[in-house]
Design a binder for these strands. Structure first.
Length: 813
RNA sequence: GCCGACGUGGUGGAACUGGUAGACACGCCAGACUUAGGAUCUGGUACCUCACGGUGUCCGGGUUCGAGUCCCGGCGUUGGCACCA
């Protein structure tokens, strides 16, 4: 700041100096480490913690973190105590696979990667509280991950069962259903096989209704909420029981009970427990052969190659609606995991059933028709009811009834006869958390021959992952830990007899399903999370992250939170009050990847332009929630903007008064930025500030202190180092601009004395007129007629005049 | 197949509840200052037209004084789910 009318020489803006100075000061002064116990108006700003890859911080990480950081800094400028922690998701298959690839040991590689990430994150100027860092591969963390497993175990929510699981032959491990895409491993793209292994599961399916219903209460990005709903997959329908002579009844699940009069067979999944009982002696060999064939078939040919196969069991069931006998088949197009593992075949109104009927020459009966359809004509394809006006046909006394009504009526009718009941079904499966791998938290269970599975007593946690050199997985389906009897042989905690530890580790998603609970208490070694801090700081106020985790991570976190609530350990059941999904940064229209050679190194960009310019540019290149295409060229504009801001601060004077027109623009800018930031409208907020700087630095004018000081505050969330430095130049030393509050705007300042009104003739804009603020429609009309360009169109008395106050006048001639 | 998002200059993108389409920025053009400039500053830049004017927000209809915005029908891009009965 200067009192002299002739401004002094402005020092050049040198980001690298300014940024290192302020990063050091923040660390020394503890600027970013709030007093969690005493801070008032707590605001928990969470960003999805990264997996510390060997490549270092990715531009997508920085985009995500910067957006979250701006939001957090803004909340702090609003006077809240903002907690913005970060950590590293350093356990798990991704870290391990990379270590294997480069021939390193994950236990040695991971600390190096984490250190590199810390360095890069520091450079980015995030308002992170480093005193609460969390590292999931740290025993001090995974001790509590194991503790969490035990809480689920105690509540009967963790169980072990032999299950056909997805086995990736390349990763040599079991994959969750969520990690299989089109029959391929999500991570390495290998074909996934089926294997039967003993696995630990969490009963997520038990929470399906709650996980679904609560979605309505969440302030989340709609895309994310929709993805969760799809994943949980609620279907309303019915269980219908078909009598089978000399055997157990078969119960099927259907969402179309109204079509039961068209059910011409029943079909069981190959894994269905009744298959053997039902099969007649004559068909036994055929069925056994079929079962053998489907069992050895890999997941791909079952899920991708959709050619229908199946065999007749010889059994006959009775259609409860028609009383007619129908055949019972076995076919692998029926999934054991969904519904009851059995369905009724209604070829007339289900595509898959139609295909099956054609292949095996089974009768096709039409039982639903549109109003204009000929119900007697044979079907050439399945007719799935599309309109509510569709009516039942060939369905006894239900014929003529509209489909929606019939869905209920048919079930009620069958229910009276004891052969149906309404049911709601969910697609969500239980969560398989076992991994036959090394780099994860050992599951804290000990198998004793006399006591069975015994949980490791909590005071013996953590079960430390031993440092073994032969950590690579092999084809055996057992964990590398199972090769180390010196590790797994332990006395039973209950009876003392020599027993065996569980040698599987848990899924990475378990590590990340509770990390947000750990942050506030990260420095506590005696509890997973402190009760008082948790009560004060959770649930998370705003969570920002990528939509690639819309299903898995967010769903698992919600599940774990509900479980802890039910256990009485916390008093909320939804972890993230507000969630916003950021977009993706692409390059030249494609995802960035090493193979495409279009990866950007953030270090180089920060070296060249400074973190502040880089941050601001990332936020400027597109709407935050949509992402955008990264191009180097655009960053110069942002850097120019910061240079000009810097220049204005150094050149400003305190003599004289601020210009009223400039001040009006300033207040409009404050309003815009204040509204845009909480809505994550970063690109438009930056544009507004650029507009203001353009006004501020219009040629030949001297910038006044009062015109530029609020601008520095507005810029602060985006370019925090520059803002700190400028704030000091403006006379505030010793503290931080982030404790200086946020400028307010005066609504009275937003109203100009004169207004520009657009004038249209028949809806076409022909010009504008300047009128006084309080002008009436007549005033505006009179002013408009004085404009020759407008008057020439008004040759007769207008038919109609529409006036939108303050905006526009439309003259209809 | 089901569910969702989107489609605007040479480019990234603006546009509140329908109300001056193209803010802001990149690029480009011209000029100033310069030995020079990939620095800085000033002005211009949707398209057609010398101009008057006309045409323009994926395409075709509609509602309205007025449509990028609302409605109907297409086309295209993209995300999620998917033999889920």
């Amino acid at each position: 700041m200067s009192d002299s009318p002739t401004p002094p020489e402005t020092p050049a803006y040198d980001p690298s100096t300014v940024e290192s100075v302020w990063q050091t000061r923040w660390a020394e002064r503890g600027t970013n480490a709030p007093e969690l116990a005493t801070g008032r108006d707590p605001y928990y700003q969470l960003m999805m913690f990264p997996y510390p890859s060997a490549e270092g911080l990715h531009i997508g990480n920085l985009f995500a973190f910067t957006g979250a950081d701006i939001h957090g800094r803004f909340q702090r400028l609003q006077g809240r105590t903002v907690f913005e922690p970060i950590g590293f998701d350093s356990f798990g298959i991704h870290s391990e696979n990379f270590a294997i690839k480069v021939g390193a040991h994950p236990a040695r590689l991971t600390p190096r990667n984490v250190e590199n990430f810390r360095r890069q994150l520091h450079r980015a100027g995030l308002m992170v509280d480093w005193s609460k860092e969390v590292v999931t591969s740290d025993p001090g963390y995974y001790k509590w991950t194991q503790w969490l497993f035990l809480q689920l175990y105690k509540q009967g929510l963790a169980y072990k069962k032999a299950a056909a699981v997805n086995w990736c032959p390349s990763c040599k491990t079991v994959l969750a259903n969520e990690q299989v895409k089109d029959g391929h491993c999500e991570r390495c793209d290998s074909l996934v096989e089926q294997r039967l292994l003993e696995q630990w599961f969490f009963r997520t399916s038990q929470y399906a209704p709650r996980l679904l219903d609560n979605i309505a209460t969440l302030d989340w990005s709609e895309t994310t909420r929709q993805a969760q709903r799809n994943w949980i997959g609620r279907s309303e329908g019915a269980h219908v029981t078909f009598r089978v002579a000399n055997a157990h009844d078969v119960t099927v699940f259907t969402t179309r009970p109204d079509t039961i009069f068209g059910a011409t067979w029943v079909v069981l999944a190959p894994e269905h427990p009744l298959v053997h009982e039902i099969t007649t002696p004559a068909q036994r060999s055929v069925v056994d052969e079929y079962l053998e064939r489907t069992k050895t078939q890999d997941v791909v040919s079952r899920k991708v190659n959709k050619e229908k196969t199946g065999v007749f069991t010889g059994a006959v069931a009775i259609n409860p609606a028609t009383g007619q006998p129908i055949p019972v088949w076995v076919a692998d197009y029926v999934l054991m995991e969904y519904g009851t593992g059995a369905v009724m075949g209604v070829p007339g109104h289900d595509e898959r059933d139609f295909e099956f009927a054609e292949k095996f020459a089974l009768p096709i009966v039409r039982v639903v028709a549109g109003v204009d359809d000929d119900a007697a004509a044979p079907l050439t394809a399945a007719y799935a009811a599309k309109r509510d006006a569709d009516l039942l046909v060939n369905s006894a006394h239900f014929s003529g009834m509209p489909v929606p009504q019939a869905k209920k009526a048919v079930v009620a009718w069958l229910e009276e006869r004891g052969s149906a009941r309404p049911v709601v079904n969910y697609r969500l499966n239980d969560w398989c958390i076992s991994r036959q791998r090394y780099w994860g938290p050992p599951i804290p269970i000990i198998y004793c021959d006399s006591c069975g599975p015994v949980p490791v007593p909590e005071d013996q946690l953590p079960v430390v992952l031993p440092l073994i050199e032969d950590f690579r997985p092999d084809d055996s389906g057992i964990s590398p830990l199972a090769r180390h009897d010196e590790w797994y042989r332990v006395p039973c905690p209950q009876c003392g007899v020599m027993s065996r530890r569980e040698t599987d580790v848990s899924d990475t998603f378990l590590d990340s399903a509770w990390y947000f609970l750990r942050y506030p208490s990260a420095d506590r070694t005696d509890v997973p999370f402190d009760a008082a801090l948790t009560k004060k700081w959770l649930p998370v106020t705003t969570y920002i992250g990528g939509n690639e985790h819309a299903v898995l991570h967010l769903l698992y976190s919600r599940f774990i939170t509900m479980v802890l609530k039910d256990a009485g350990l916390i008093d909320f059941e939804e972890p993230f009050t507000r969630f916003r999904a950021h977009g993706m940064i692409i390059r030249d229209g494609a995802k960035m990847s090493k193979s495409k050679g279009n990866v950007i190194n953030p270090d180089e960009l920060i070296d060249r332009w400074g973190a502040d310019s880089f941050r601001t540019y990332l936020m400027f290149l597109g709407p935050y929630e949509e992402g955008g295409d990264y191009r180097d060229s655009g960053i110069t504009g942002v850097r120019r903007f910061l240079d000009r801001t810097w220049g204005s601060v150094h050149e400003c004077v305190t003599t004289g008064t601020a210009d009223p027109t400039v001040m009006r623009k300033l207040h409009a800018t404050i309003k815009k930025v204040t509204e845009d930031i909480p809505a994550l409208g970063y690109n438009t907020a930056i544009a507004a500030m650029m507009e203001y700087v353009n006004v501020l630095r219009a040629s030949e004018r001297t910038v006044h202190h009062d015109e530029v000081a609020p601008l520095v505050q507005l810029v602060a969330p985006f370019a925090p180092h520059l803002a700190e430095q400028c704030w000091e130049v403006l006379g505030h030393s010793g503290g931080s601009i982030f404790d200086a509050g946020w400028p307010t705007f005066d609504p009275a300042m937003l109203v100009a004395d004169t207004l520009t009104i657009a004038v249209q003739i028949n809806g076409k804009t022909r010009g504008t007129v300047q009128v006084a603020r309080d002008a009436t429609q007549d005033d505006v009309y009179a002013a408009a007629l004085k404009e020759p360009n407008i008057a020439k169109f008004v040759t007769t008395v207008p038919k109609k005049i529409i006036y939108v106050p303050g905006r526009l006048l439309n003259i209809v001639v």
